[in-house]
Design a protein around this nucleic acid. Structure first.
Length: 417
DNA sequence: TACACACCTTG
DNA sequence: AAGGTGTGT
């Protein structure tokens, strides 16, 4: 069977920068194996992306089914809504059909609170997108049309990123400065299962180790994606179902795999989810208000405020959610809220204050704006900034401006050790 | 409420 | 150290 052809979708590079969006630590399974070509797994297929100034190019490598029964099941689960309508257990599957795709495109939800003009823009843009989809419907087969829907959904291309950048720049001079060199950073709409367990792994970790842990989860508990040809000279696996992570002995196996204390978090959380409606428990959080969904998430072992906010922002349709990690705390203290420099630690109260401050400043999509500044501060993207002379000077300035108080606190910490 | 500290590994 | 969380004071 031949490799699928590349297809294009109109998308300005200012609306999406693959390199930044796929490597900024919101999703951990994308790799630039070949220069400019990003490869990863969405649902139970391998996807590849590349781009020009005006278009996003993509091709999809789909799992080859083994029987009609498997194919029917795949269809039933294709939008990620987990409902066991088919007697799955009776059929031993070789590859992961039940994991499902990403999210439900048909029900792109516009929350009432997303006003301030943004709601209108988003709504009208969705209409445009749908029109565009309708117009190409006849040209392509159904499957390529479905692929396009997955693509739009995954990258949330119905959201006009450039317009948001303009809004944020208008109300925030610091954002205006930084964002000039960091365009095209947008939130993905990830699968909640993968997103949740990835961020349970994230505590006290670097992106590189998180990535290797997530890959291990897929390798050991997911299903191999069967392709009739080789892609990038490697194998690909679906992200595991929650039930696979709740099975007996998972914690021990994860410890052997080097997950450390997170091994327990993963199995305990998986068990909780399985006992409370399985993956549907997770999907239902999308229909809740921010606070309610967050409260539910934080019942999970290993999920505190920060991980909960990551999950809410990156897969549960809460664009105003602001995950405050140590890094964001420092950005806030350095560039926005000087009084934070007097704080000893990030208490619950301060955590909420920081989130509220940014929501007040940036509006309903504050979480998206936060990720632009977060990415700009990542070590791997610093070169990006240093390549611009003016910005190189700026960076130095910020570093030297780290407050005396904070330095003292750090020194104190060292002493006490 | 606000800290302090342990927790597992590895890039 | 590294993009935290759970527990105890």
């Amino acid at each position: 069977m031949a490799t699928p052809i590349w297809r294009s979708f109109p998308c300005k590079i200012a609306e999406l920068r693959l390199d930044r969006t796929l490597a900024c630590g919101q999703s951990f399974r994308w790799k630039e194996h070949s220069p400019g070509i990003w490869t990863g797994v969405i649902g139970c297929a391998v996807w590849q992306f590349k781009q020009t100034d005006s278009h996003l190019w993509y091709r999809v490598h789909k799992d080859v089914g083994h029987s009609k029964i498997t194919n029917i099941k795949m269809e039933a689960d294709s939008n990620g809504v987990i409902e066991n309508k088919t007697p799955v257990k009776s059929v031993k599957r070789k590859s992961g059909k039940r994991h499902g795709g990403t999210q439900n495109v048909e029900t792109v939800k516009i929350k009432e609170e997303l006003t301030c003009g943004i709601k209108e823009e988003v709504t009208s843009d969705i209409k445009t997108t749908n029109d565009r989809l309708d117009s190409v419907k006849d040209k392509f087969s159904n499957s390529s049309n479905d692929d396009e829907r997955v693509l739009i959904d995954y990258f949330q291309l119905h959201v006009q990123l450039e317009d948001l950048y303009k809004e944020w720049a208008k109300v925030d001079k610091h954002f205006e400065t930084i964002s000039k060199d960091f365009s095209g950073i947008r939130m993905l709409r990830q699968n909640p299962v993968e997103c949740l367990f990835s961020f349970i792994c994230s505590s006290n970790n670097h992106i590189s180790r998180i990535s290797s842990m997530v890959e291990k989860l897929a390798l050991h508990f997911g299903d191999q994606i069967n392709l009739p040809y080789c892609v990038e000279g490697r194998e690909f696996y679906t992200f595991p179902k929650v039930s696979a992570l709740a099975a007996d002995g998972v914690e021990e196996k994860l410890r052997d795999l080097g997950f450390g204390y997170r091994a327990k978090y993963i199995q305990k959380s998986a068990c909780y989810i399985v006992d409370n409606g399985d993956e549907n428990w997770l999907f239902k959080l999308k229909d809740m208000e921010y606070i309610e969904a967050k409260t539910h998430l934080m019942k999970l072992c290993g999920v505190g405020a920060k991980v909960a906010d990551c999950v809410l922002l990156m897969c549960l349709d809460q664009p105003g959610s602001i995950p405050v990690d140590t890094h964001v705390w420092q950005i806030a203290a350095r560039d926005y809220i000087p009084k934070l420099n007097h704080a000893k630690s990030l208490t619950d109260k301060l955590y909420n204050e920081i989130g509220d401050y940014f929501r007040e400043l940036w509006g309903p999509y504050a979480g998206w704006a936060h990720s632009v500044l977060f990415t700009a501060d990542l070590r791997q993207f610093r070169n990006n900034e240093l390549s611009n002379d003016k910005k190189g000077a700026k960076r130095k300035k910020y570093n030297s401006e780290e407050s005396d108080v904070k330095v003292k606190v750090k020194a104190k910490k060292k002493k006490s050790l």
